[in-house]
């Protein structure tokens, strides 16, 4: 198959849109890791939890109240803020001073628990099972599942929304971190929490705030995930977390705008490499894997040249 300009640009556009979603998914993880050195490996599961909520919303609420399920991304965000806050206070806060291993194991356990709930259903809410089409349900119910066309290019609406959210929300978050007292307190705590504490900053409140903010971002990303992908219970660990790690490390730990740029980069690399894979002879048609292979290769090359990531100061400090 020959590679036309239109297809190539379409792949670029898809990559940018998908990249916006990646950036949105990774930003919360990056914030939490930057501030409290906690690797929240349940972040992917948090996103799936939000996607699960949106799917339930589209099954249970939309048919009755005729509300576009796309609006549920905001309730997801609120819900995840609550979940994140509770997880921080009940779980992370008690163990985070012991080093980074305990929170890592605790959030790993949490992600297993969340996956179990998603694959078995929570109370009256049915389980996530794409073979029964439940994973794709949110798309069918959405008034926004349509794609729209700009010139010869097609844009899927939920993906475009993820892109817009990323481009709007992440710079606002960056402004919050650099311009407001609370934002500066978050940065001060991430640079030297003890110094922040004896300078008069309530670092427990700051850590809680960053965990809530990071989790709310997972909620936003998760709601959109329900529209753009077929959601499975283990998608958090199998699909999202690897991409999140790549984006966060490329962007530089704790750098929000770096995360945004890295999200776009990874999105474009993935989408263009799938396109290239499609043009290969049929015996090489394992394109889904080839796309990840190319992405991780480029990731390794970039890290060899710039070990601190593209924009950040890296973990070195």
């Amino acid at each position: 198959m020959a590679l036309g300009t239109v297809e190539f640009v379409q792949a670029l556009v898809n990559g940018l849109l998908q990249g916006g979603f990646f950036a949105l998914s990774a930003a919360g993880f990056s914030l939490i890791f930057g501030v409290q050195k906690v690797l929240n490996v349940a972040h992917g599961a948090f996103i799936v939890l939000a996607a699960f909520a949106t799917i339930q919303f589209s099954i249970l609420v939309t048919p009755v109240l005729h509300i576009d399920p796309l609006l549920s991304i905001f309730t997801d965000s609120l819900m995840l803020a609550l979940v994140g806050g509770s997880v921080y206070l009940l779980l992370i806060y008690r163990i985070e001073r012991t080093g980074f291993e305990a929170p890592l194991l605790a959030t790993f356990g949490l992600s297993i628990l969340l996956e179990y709930l998603a694959s078995n259903g929570i109370g009256p809410f049915p389980a996530l099972d794409p073979s029964h089409g439940i994973g794709a349900q949110a798309q069918h119910q959405s008034y926004s599942s349509t794609a729209f066309q700009i010139g010869p290019f097609f844009l899927q609406e939920a993906q475009a929304l993820a892109f817009v959210m990323a481009v709007v929300v992440l710079p606002i978050l960056q402004l919050f971190l650099s311009r407001t007292y609370r934002g500066r307190a978050i940065r001060a705590t991430s640079q030297d929490w003890e110094a922040a504490e004896f300078s008069g900053i309530n670092t427990k409140a700051v850590r809680l705030l960053s965990f809530i903010t990071g989790s709310a971002l997972a909620g936003l990303a998760g709601g959109l995930f329900a529209f753009t992908n077929s959601v499975t219970a283990t998608a958090g660990d199998e699909v999202l977390l690897p991409v999140i790690l790549v984006v966060v490390i490329l962007g530089g730990i704790g750098s929000i705008l770096g995360t945004l740029a890295a999200g776009f980069l990874v999105g474009v690399i993935m989408s263009v490499s799938s396109l290239i894979a499609l043009t290969l002879p049929s015996q090489f048609q394992f394109h889904a894997d080839l796309a990840s292979l190319l992405t991780f290769l480029i990731f390794i090359v970039i890290l060899m040249v710039r070990p601190r990531g593209l924009f950040g100061h890296g973990i070195a400090e």
């Binding site: 001060a188 030297d192 004896f198 100061h313």
Partner: peptide, 29 residues
């Protein structure tokens, strides 16, 4: 941070400034 609020301030050995902040931001904190 509560001790700071009631009137005790501390200048540690080795200064412990916030390295990725400006002078003004450090003072503001």
């Amino acid at each position: 941070h509560t001790l700071v609020a009631i009137g005790i301030a501390y200048v540690p050995e080795g200064r412990r400034l916030f390295p990725e902040m400006t002078v003004r931001e450090n003072l503001r904190m």
